Amino acid sequence: MRNKKTYWEEYRMKLHEDINLNVRLKSPMEIDSALTSLINTTKQATQVATPKITFQNNTRNVPIEIKKLISQKRRARARWYRSQAPTDKTTYSHTSNGLKCKIKEARESSFSNYITSLNRYDNTIWKPIKHLKNPRHRYIL
């Protein structure tokens, strides 16, 4: 696993501690066991010195229908890239435009649900309005 955040000094120290350089290498079995030991040691050092990478899942709130349309669009695009046929380009354009419409509808319905859930009595209506005073957040709503 490659990662920008590997602690190289810790990696070197772990290798220095665990590698045994006084290994007999006379027979093929000894060479195989020494090689296996070296590979396992480097794997362990890598696991110790490299933090785990976590990815954020941004597809939590995407409806299943939109996910299916995304996969259809990707398949149509791949087919069109391979064949360059006009019919495949038409299919790709239709699926792409259909996906855009569905995403727009989902955003509009999500926004309308958000707006209808705001209430002036529990002060939820003032939070989005507060951001409108800041010029950077003027076009949020």
Rank of each mutant, 00 (worst) to 15 (best):
M1K: 05
N3R: 05
N3C: 14
N3G: 10
N3W: 02
K4P: 14
T6R: 13
E10F: 00
E10R: 12
E10K: 13
Y11E: 03
R12G: 07
M13S: 14
M13L: 12
L15W: 03
L15Y: 02
H16C: 11
E17G: 01
D18R: 13
I19G: 01
N20S: 02
N20R: 10
L21I: 08
R24Q: 09
R24Y: 03
R24M: 08
K26R: 14
E30M: 05
I31P: 00
I31S: 07
S33G: 00
L35I: 08
T36R: 11
T36H: 04
S37E: 08
I39Y: 04
N40M: 07
N40H: 09
T42Y: 05
K43M: 02
K43W: 01
T46G: 13
A49Q: 04
T50K: 02
T50E: 03
P51R: 07
K52Q: 13
T54F: 12
T54Q: 12
N57A: 08
N58V: 00
N58W: 07
R60W: 00
N61V: 00
V62G: 01
V62S: 02
P63G: 04
P63T: 11
P63V: 05
I64K: 11
E65L: 07
I66V: 14
K68V: 04
I70W: 01
I70A: 05
Q72G: 04
Q72D: 12
W80N: 09
Y81T: 10
S83H: 09
S83I: 08
Q84R: 15
Q84S: 06
Q84M: 04
D88C: 01
T91S: 13
Y92W: 12
Y92F: 15
S93F: 03
T95F: 12
T95W: 04
S96Q: 09
G98F: 07
L99S: 03
C101M: 09
C101H: 10
I103Q: 07
E105S: 12
A106H: 14
E108N: 14
S109P: 00
S110D: 10
S110P: 00
F111S: 04
N113M: 11
I115M: 15
T116C: 08
L118H: 06
L118I: 06
R120I: 12
D122P: 04
D122T: 10
N123P: 00
N123V: 03
T124Y: 06
T124G: 04
I125M: 12
I125Q: 06
I125E: 09
W126E: 06
W126G: 03
K127C: 03
I129G: 02
K130Q: 10
K130H: 11
H131N: 11
N134D: 15
N134K: 14
R136W: 04
R136F: 02
R136A: 08
H137T: 10
H137R: 09
R138P: 00
R138D: 00
I140C: 04
